[in-house]
Nucleic acid binder design. Structure first.
Lengths: 236, 236
DNA sequence: CGCTACCTTGATGAAGCTCAATAACAGTGG
DNA sequence: CCACTGTTATTGAGCTTCATCAAGGTAGCG
């Protein structure tokens, strides 16, 4: 892990970590023991958390803020593949096979993180069957998300991908709602595999479907169902 | 699992399964016990092995042939995301979280498969720490591959993706060599996120770099290093 | 108020898709 | 062995989509 300023975990941190999806099956004492070996860190925007191929010595849990997962394809180019929010985890793929992070991670917004030593996590996995299964399930669901993303990149147009992204933020609530973007639009664009210009034009095109930019960070979705129909290709 | 014609596993099957990456850490007797609950199946080309959202009751290990992983993005469209060859595994992501396959699988060529009941595998995972770690590592490396694929789709041109695909088939051997494609070019094209026409044109473009189509299934790569330089974007 | 990012908008060009025609096969049956 | 046929790969022409380049516009902030 790069030289992040570290501090002890606070009680408030522990509370928020308890509700992280990954730790749900862990009994209270076991989580406490695990967190006993962990520490907190604060990263300013754009701060690199770890580089690709660096030894994977910690699991990073996002307590607050947004962290980006960056994959490199050549020596000079890399791109944003995932956005990781509070309660989610980054770096897990490096812990179990090569021992090196397969991707880089970077804070997108300012972020507060929990750093869990790899050794402690592995030990915890060996002693708690529940966490083990959960971890397998967790990795599986990550696979699911990535596969879906690949399919979307191949099959959907830019406006459809934008629509799909927005629907992912309208948490299963139906009806008119406003979405707050967690980060700048240029970042979102990279995440969706397009330029900021294309994102802008795509949003403009979605206005006919009741999607309106409201200021810089908010987007109003009038009718998620209509948007969903467009994304599914009913319209075209 | 759909109604595939099943048969008992032969000794030859068992030998080939022993060398499957996933089962490496398993002691001989444990593997024998696991395979005792499994059976073999034969699928003709294009045969669907399982559909998306179907209950994930088996892990499928490819003994021979090629199997494709298909992801659906809408009710009408789906695309090929991965090609799975002998010794590799498909369906693993469904076993650990929702209990349903997150993708569909389809034989691409004729294929011989081992079907391992999910319950037997889970039991084996609980009793063998080695396999457990290995499974975590296995899922992690799958994540790695998919992340890489996403980055390639976003950042590389069609000819670069084709080059990258070919390099993946030139197993770390240096120097002039001929690659045999495991399946039809239209399938490869779908896998690479392009149309068969674009694949054809890309190959034509790569001819200047010493890549020659030889007949329908074979491709001659004269100089992998030159190709690698192109893929990495040194040329453009 | 003026600065600096960031977002939007417009014009242009290139990459890749679609449609259509041709060419190379593979398998079939004579 | 060869013509026939359905399938797959290639090639070409036109067009859509998206990236690029360049120019305003807008919001936040000293």
């Amino acid at each position: 892990m790069t030289d992040l300023p570290r501090e002890p975990l606070t009680d408030a941190d522990a509370v928020r970590l308890r509700s992280a999806a990954l730790f749900v099956p862990l009994p209270r004492e076991a989580l406490a023991a695990l967190l006993g070996e962990a520490c907190a860190a604060v990263a300013e925007p754009f701060r690199v958390l770890f580089e690709q191929d660096q030894p994977a010595d910690h699991l990073v849990v996002v307590i607050e803020g947004v962290v980006g997962v960056m994959a490199a394809v050549g020596p000079h180019e890399s791109c944003l593949v995932e956005l990781i929010g509070p309660g989610q985890v980054v770096g897990e793929a490096g812990l179990f096979d090569t021992g090196r992070y397969p991707v880089a991670a970077q804070a997108i917004t300012g972020a507060r993180l929990a750093l869990i030593p790899a050794a402690a996590l592995r030990e915890c996995l060996d002693t708690h069957a529940g966490l083990r299964r959960h971890m397998l399930g967790f990795l599986s669901s990550r696979l699911r998300v990535l596969v879906q993303q690949i399919a979307q990149l191949k099959l959907m147009s830019a406006p459809q991908r934008v629509g799909s992204f927005l629907l992912g933020l309208t948490q299963r609530r139906a009806g008119r709602q406003t979405i707050r973007l967690a980060c700048e639009r240029r970042i979102i664009a990279g995440m969706l595999g397009m330029t900021p210009e294309s994102l802008s034009r795509s949003l403009r095109q979605l206005r006919d479907l009741g999607v309106q930019s409201q200021g810089k960070r908010d987007i109003l979705v009038e009718d998620p169902e209509r948007l969903r129909a467009f994304v599914a290709g009913i319209t075209e």
